[in-house]
Computed example of a mutant assay.
Amino acid sequence: MLSEIINMNYLVVLLMLLWIGFTYACTCAPRSEAEMFCSPYTKFGALVKTKDDGNTNTSIVRRMRRYKIRTVEMFKSGTNKVNKNVIFTNLNSAGCGVTLEAHTYYVLTGDVIDLNKGKKKPGSKAKKNRMKVSICDLVKKVNPPECPSLDDMKPSLTNYKPEP
């Protein structure tokens, strides 16, 4: 009888430890946007527009989700040999991954994954490095201002008279 109670206590403790392990799989120290952007550990900062939602069959690459992006502006870059057409993140939030919406503008900071580290062979072409973002980095959805089309501007341009 006593051994069953002890075994039950071990089971309860084990279940509690498992629950704590799953709940705190990815945690980050609280930081301001300025701290995230200006940190020496931040390797890139960019304004990007996503082209897809990262949920296609070709979007999953070695346990990472790949988003096709259009880089509008790079603010900070640890290297100029970065693939600016895609960004990577872990598959889910337990691995610190982020979810980005398609056709949306974001200001992102993150790390650069060096694909050539220790793999440089004589005569081989160097691979472009990857940008990687996580929930510990700055991931901010932004709405850039709408720019008028040239057609909308034509009436004001035709009436323009320079001052003497």
Rank of each mutant, 00 (worst) to 15 (best):
M1H: 14
P162S: 08
G95T: 11
T27S: 11
G54K: 05
K128T: 02
Y105F: 03
N90T: 10
T104P: 04
S59E: 00
A102F: 07
H103T: 09
M153Q: 09
A46T: 06
V82N: 07
L11Y: 13
W19S: 08
N7Q: 14
Y67S: 05
K120Q: 08
A25T: 12
S156V: 12
V12W: 14
N116Y: 07
V112L: 03
H103M: 05
E35C: 10
S59G: 08
T50Y: 02
E33V: 10
I6L: 11
V72G: 04
V82R: 08
T89F: 09
P40C: 08
V61A: 07
E4I: 13
C26K: 12
S134F: 15
G118H: 13
L15E: 05
Y105T: 04
W19V: 11
T79N: 11
I113L: 12
N92M: 08
V82E: 00
C26M: 10
T79A: 01
L14E: 05
V86W: 09
L17K: 15
A34Q: 14
K161N: 08
T71M: 02
T56S: 05
K76H: 04
S93N: 06
P145M: 05
F88Q: 06
K81F: 12
G21M: 04
E146W: 11
F22A: 15
S3F: 14
D152A: 12
K51I: 01
F44P: 03
R63Q: 11
V13I: 15
K120D: 05
L108D: 02
R130S: 12
K141V: 02
C96K: 13
L150D: 11
T104H: 09
L100W: 02
L18T: 10
P155S: 13
Y67L: 05
G21D: 04
L14K: 13
N116M: 08
K141M: 02
L150V: 12
G45K: 03
P30K: 03
R31Q: 10
A126N: 13
S77A: 14
F75T: 08
D137T: 07
D152I: 01
S149Q: 12
I60F: 07
K43V: 01
K84F: 11
L108R: 05
K117M: 09
D114R: 14
K132N: 08
R130G: 12
I69L: 03
G97D: 07
E35T: 07
D152Y: 15
L91V: 12
P148M: 00
R70G: 04
S32Y: 06
F75K: 11
G45V: 02
S59L: 00
P144A: 02
V48Y: 02
L138F: 04
I135M: 14
S39M: 04
F37L: 06
L157C: 06
K132L: 10
